[in-house]
């Protein structure tokens, strides 16, 4: 959006133009920064080597298959759900959260 399109038509007081101009100047700077940031963001973490190693580090689909089970993390909420649906509760209890660590 250009600065010209944002400016209101018609006369303004000297104070209004100064204040409004300042706000619009800041807005334009922020939009420019945001656009430049997005471009740099694409450059920083989409170099081929970075993408490859990121994919090596993050869990694969096969490693995440266990997350297809809809794990609750609150025992009391699980208890309420079990009572509501007439189902038993399966609790996976581990030192260090089982859904974190390994």
């Amino acid at each position: 959006m250009s600065l010209e399109r944002v400016l209101p038509s018609g006369k303004q007081s000297e104070f209004d133009i100064g204040w409004l101009g300042g706000c619009l100047r800041d807005y334009k700077l922020k939009m420019q920064n945001l656009f430049q940031t997005m471009l740099i963001g694409l450059a920083v973490l989409t170099s081929q080597a970075d993408v490859v190693v990121v994919n090596e580090i993050t869990p694969s689909k096969a490693e995440s298959a266990w997350l297809e089970i809809d794990w609750e993390t609150d025992l009391w909420e699980a208890r309420k759900e079990a009572a509501r649906t007439d189902k038993p509760i399966y609790l996976w209890e581990m030192d260090g959260h089982p859904l974190g660590c390994v």
């Binding site: 609750e72 025992l75 909420e77 189902k87 509760i89 996976w92 209890e93 581990m94």
Partner: peptide, 23 residues
Amino acid sequence: VFANAEVKKLLKEEFVTVAADDW
């Protein structure tokens, strides 16, 4: 265990599953 197809099916269909940090 939890990637095993039969275990996964039973847990998804027959249970309310919850995981917790014992600490």
